[in-house]
Design a binder for these strands. Structure first.
Lengths: 189, 189
DNA sequence: ATTAGTATTAGCACTTGGTACTAATACCAA
DNA sequence: TTGGTATTAGTACCAAGTGCTAATACTAAT
């Protein structure tokens, strides 16, 4: 049952990603090749040795109880017209999705929309008061989410600003939300 | 400078718990004793060697990531009754708030609520379809947010589950939300 | 001070799961 | 047949240990 080198290496990568705790010896037995071959394969593929792999897994856990976004703004704002409109992009990667099925967790999309809504308001500080959102279509790892926020109305006497947010991937709407924001200071201008 | 054996051992335990990645040699240097002494100490205290410790950390991390959904939850779930109710707590710290005024960013509260809504659903996978939320009262760094999710209804023919989420700090409501969840029964492309 | 008992240090052989390197052999293709 | 890649084998070496024995040091009690 000889596999080609290429085939073996791709299976090897998969195996190791799947279970980083496997030794070269076990892999050699599994693929019916010598330990040296496995080592050569790892070197070609730049896969570190067992202990390093384990250490990486451990460090990831230890580094910081990861969870999520610490940034001021989720996504990168690429255009903004204060008190009017704003646009941001957010590249979805593997840490934003459910491992199960690769679909992005809702709160990341919400986070992008919410922080864009905060950013568009031309004020010292804006807080979200209410919001109504719909997750229209699943977003996956690798997708680039383009989010647009548009100020749709204001109630200056109540310190409220209304914002409509739409997120798209490849021009298809994936998320829509209405945000009612509270602003600390009244409107300037 | 010389500490008693007992003192050293308790400090040792602390050090290692604090940073499991430290070698006997480093510890020996730190406590000004020989490596052998450190080894004896570890044996008496039943502390495994560096590699085992690292492997433990890694395995723990790995299991959690694999077994999921609890790892994908923002906040810590302290009680759960599948398809019925769930409770989680989330300690707000400085990285979750606006520097300006110390008020928590909305999407963190949303994330806690949303992931609790996902967790309470007793299914392979749940996705948020829509949600309607209100940020009732500002939350600040240091606050412990207690969030309760209650399943309020279902539309099995449409694969929908409705969940009401309420977050409180010191028994005062700070956040309320209604979530409409989509649940996949088995497959999905 | 002597003696017992614990504490500490030292040294050596051996273990795992490797790296780094060299050399030999096998296989496949023009 | 020649060449190039692929595979295997073998050696020396490393880190961070375990396991064991033996020597020394430090107290504390008689």
């Amino acid at each position: 049952m000889k596999r080609s080198k290429k085939e073996r290496q791709s299976l090897l990568t998969e195996k190791i990603t799947d279970n980083p705790f496997v030794t070269d010896e076990q892999l050699a037995a599994e693929f019916n090749v010598s330990v040296q071959t496995i080592r050569l394969d790892r070197m070609e593929l730049a896969i570190p040795e067992l202990r390093e792999r384990i250490k990486d897994v451990a460090a990831k856990n230890y580094d910081e109880v990861k969870s999520l976004p610490l940034d001021e703004v989720i996504g990168e704002i690429i255009d903004i017209e204060l008190d009017n409109r704003a646009l941001s992009i957010f590249d979805v990667s593997s840490e934003h999705v459910f491992q199960r099925n690769g679909i992005a967790r809702g709160h990341h999309l919400f986070a992008q929309a919410n922080s864009l809504a905060v950013a568009v308001i031309n004020d010292e500080l804006a807080l979200t008061a209410k919001s109504n959102v719909a997750f229209v279509k699943p977003v996956r790892a690798g997708d680039r989410v383009v989010t647009k926020a548009i100020v749709t109305g204001k109630l200056p006497e109540k310190n409220r600003t209304f914002i409509e947010v739409t997120s798209t991937v490849d021009n298809e709407v994936v998320f829509k939300g209405d945000f009612e924001m509270y602003r600390t200071k009244g409107e300037e201008k």
